[in-house]
Computed example of a mutant assay.
Amino acid sequence: MNRIRRFLFLCALAATIGLPNVGQSQVGQSQLANPDMASEKELLALPHMTAALAKSIMEQRPFLNMADLHALLSKTLSKEQLAELYGKMFVQINLNTAAPSEILLIPGVGNRMLREFQEYRPYKTIAQFRKEIGKYVDQKEVARLEQYVFVPVNLNSASDADILSIPGTGKRMLREFKEYRPYTNIAQFRKEIGKYVDKKEVARLERYVTLN
């Protein structure tokens, strides 16, 4: 019996080694389509998405804030259509800097929840967001809201899991992020990461990082 227990313990341990601790990541775990990364096919599968809109999104991305995407889409879609679309696709917003108008674009968020989002600034972690917003809504709703937000990761102290939670960041980019530590300013980040990706991608990645 002891041998069986030991075997099961070692199997469980092996299964966890090397896996990122997503519970501690700084970017909300999202099932929403990312307009900066989605393929044309993925965009066209979204509600109220037309070929013309999909083309415009792909031509104008990356969207460095949700307001820019909303400005594009609101030219042709109604308020009701936008709400349905934003239930499937969104540009994640920075919990600490997003304007009230951006927060209110999250489906189901009204003035009351807007106040709660802002009350607990500055957020240091996504875990803090879960705790504070969990005072007002249940865990299922917290998980839904989390998909729309992120807390920037610290370039010099972020864990592997934090960095890997940034959309589009894999093991190769993880190595590049860590190789140039310590970063002394954002200009250094742009220069070093710009060796591997173009300026648009550097700008997209920069949204998710901080030195504070």
Score class of each variant (00 low, 15 high):
Leu69Lys: 05
Arg181Ile: 07
Ala83His: 11
Gln147His: 00
Val202Arg: 08
Val22Lys: 11
Gly23Gln: 09
Asn65Val: 03
Gly23Thr: 11
Asn185Glu: 12
Asp138Cys: 00
Tyr136Thr: 11
Glu132Arg: 14
Val91Asn: 01
Glu176Phe: 13
Glu141Pro: 01
Ser56Ala: 15
Tyr180Ala: 07
Gly87Arg: 05
Thr76Ala: 10
Tyr136Pro: 03
Asn2His: 13
Val151Met: 06
Lys55Ile: 02
Met89Gly: 01
Lys171Phe: 10
Val22Gln: 10
Ile17Glu: 13
Tyr208Arg: 07
Thr50Met: 09
Gly110Leu: 03
Gly194Ile: 06
Asn154Phe: 06
Ala45Lys: 08
Val151His: 06
Leu174Ser: 03
Arg130Lys: 09
Leu114Asn: 08
Leu46Gly: 03
Asn154Val: 06
Gln139Val: 12
Asp162Pro: 03
Thr16Ile: 13
Phe177Gln: 07
Val137His: 00
Arg3Glu: 15
Glu116Leu: 11
Glu80Asn: 08
Gln118Asn: 10
Lys79Met: 09
Arg190Leu: 09
Tyr120Val: 01
Glu192Leu: 07
Asp162Leu: 03
Lys131Met: 14
Pro47Cys: 08
Ile106Glu: 00
Asn2Met: 14
Val91Trp: 00
Leu64Met: 06
Glu59Ile: 12
Tyr123Glu: 04
Glu201Met: 12
Phe7Pro: 04
Met66Phe: 13
Thr76Ser: 14
Pro167Ser: 05
Arg144Leu: 09
Arg172Tyr: 15
Tyr196Ile: 11
Leu44Glu: 00
Gln92Val: 04
Lys55Gly: 08
Lys200Asp: 15
Gln139Ala: 15
Gln81Met: 08
Glu146Lys: 01
Ser30Asp: 08
Lys41Trp: 07
Asp68Val: 10
Val91Ser: 02
Thr184Trp: 11
Glu116Gln: 14
Leu10Trp: 10
Ala71Asn: 11
Asp198Asn: 15
Pro62Cys: 06
Ile103Phe: 02
Ser56His: 08
Arg204Pro: 05
Glu141Ala: 09
Thr76Asn: 10
Asn111Cys: 01
Leu85Ser: 02
Arg5Tyr: 14
Gln188Cys: 09
Gly18Ala: 09
Phe9Met: 12
Ser25Ile: 02
Ile163Trp: 00
Leu114Glu: 07
Glu84Thr: 13
Glu80His: 09
Gly168Ala: 09
Phe189Gln: 08
Glu102Met: 03
Leu95Thr: 09
Asp68Ala: 14
Ile166Glu: 02
Glu132Leu: 10
Leu69Arg: 05
Arg121Glu: 03
Ile163Asp: 02
Ala161Gly: 00
Ser157Lys: 13
